[in-house]
Write a protein that binds this DNA or RNA. Structure first.
Lengths: 245, 245
DNA sequence: CATCGCTTGTGTACGTTGTACACCGCAAGA
DNA sequence: TCTTGCGGTGTACAACGTACACAAGCGATG
């Protein structure tokens, strides 16, 4: 059904990940995928996602703007490489084996990882999923779910429910944090007091009485960690109940 | 403590939202926030998030590239405007009042909304939160949670747990869908069979046996709706259990 | 040792983006 | 009638991603 393109297309060129694992192919080359990934991550950590530019990365590596393109097909590849690299920081000890503990531990660690590398919340979600390290993380979590008598659908659904929650929660936490920083607030009361004019206008319009009342009253609002873990535990509780595990 | 800037800064200019609600200020003007928002949304729906460009939007409006800047401070404002506009499509009937039904209904509708406007998954998460319509949506959901004897922290946490899950789940669903489309697959078996070479390399490497086995066995994989609702119900179950409601 | 070819880095160049800024016409208030 | 200022225009710039032709160095082959 699918039409074959030119014969050249038969020559499958090694994928990004295959190349990533090749033993250092040429000793004299200045650039490697490792070096590129490291520099990009370091740059993103230091100056934020927007600073990660092919040109900026090149100067960071002391190399011409187009040099990286020999190793990476474009910016999407670069993001994938960066995500894969920092994902290796996730380390749940092997002793932890219970499904709930494994999933919870990964959730908490993923949050810390993303807070440590806030640019992770900004990468275009497309190519993010299928990097080797991310798949290894998934593998570990799924492995904790076998032997519970679940069918494949339930297993995948449970795994993904947690993952989705974590992604959404941390992303919004990061967004909020950056929004605050960008407007020069510290944290907490000061922030809520000196809200942006737009927020003030809306809040004082009287249209959101409940929101207003309760967001002022919520005292744990300055402890995003608590809120995050509450959410994780909700998801885990729900999974346990629904799947009878 | 906070240092006052120039006196000019005292003159608070009306916020985007204040201006949005002003009755048509000048009858003969070609551009309004409404018209801009409508055109931008329509463009994004039709040609995707990347097509939404200040210049492109201008030609769509039959106007010079810089014209929109008289009404909108920049692209972030535009995104906020767009998000706010489509968020008005959410409509949960007033008859629904139980906290669980309200939250679930908003969750399901938000998914449908985002699938209908896939560009929503790509908007830089920053300015998204605090638009009037989004706050009204939050208000409605929080209102469903009062009178349950919860303290403010629990209420906000419950509300946000659901929101976070929805955001994460739908975002990844959209990303997956676009990834598939971009690679020319239809849905389902065909997709999994003709996976991208990178995926093949990784999957066949034998490093992810569980992932491989179960993702092949999962038969509901082509029904994202089921998976989504499973997750929502997990979160809701967990909230009910943890908060005793 | 000479030569070839492949890999890897370089230089230049193009089209597109967001947006700053100066300008100008026109409706409304004096 | 004159002035004011709002709203649309036109030009301009710096930065972006990346295509493409080229060059320098190495390994294999003669």
């Amino acid at each position: 059904m699918a039409e074959w393109k030119k014969d050249e297309s038969r020559i499958v060129e090694p994928s990004l990940w295959e190349r990533l694992e090749r033993t250092a192919p040429a000793p004299r080359t200045a650039l490697t995928l490792e070096r590129i990934a490291a520099a990009a991550v370091e740059l993103a950590d230091r100056e934020g996602a927007d600073a990660v530019t092919m040109r900026r990365l090149a100067t960071e590596l002391g190399v011409a703007p187009m040099a990286a393109y020999r190793h990476v097909s474009g910016k999407d590849d670069l993001w994938a490489l960066m995500i894969d690299r920092v994902s290796a920081e996730l380390a749940v000890p092997d002793e932890i084996t219970g499904w709930r503990e494994v999933l919870r531990s990964f959730a908490v660690q993923t949050r810390e990882l993303m807070l440590r590398h806030p640019w992770m919340g900004r990468v275009p979600a497309g190519a993010v999923q299928l990097t080797p390290t991310r798949m290894a993380v998934a593998e570990r979590q799924l492995a904790a779910l076998v032997d519970l008598g679940l069918d494949a659908d339930a297993m995948m659904a449970a795994f993904r429910a947690v993952t989705s929650y974590v992604q959404g929660a941390v992303q919004s936490e990061i967004a909020l944090r950056e929004f605050k920083e960008q407007h020069g607030w510290g944290s907490g009361a000061e922030a809520r007091q000196a809200l942006a004019p737009q927020m003030n206008y809306l809040m004082e319009s009287g249209r959101y009485p409940v929101y207003r009342t309760y967001s002022l009253a919520a005292s744990r609002k300055d402890d995003p960690g608590w809120e995050f873990e509450f959410g994780v535990d909700c998801v885990l509780d729900g999974i346990a109940r629904r799947l009878g595990i």
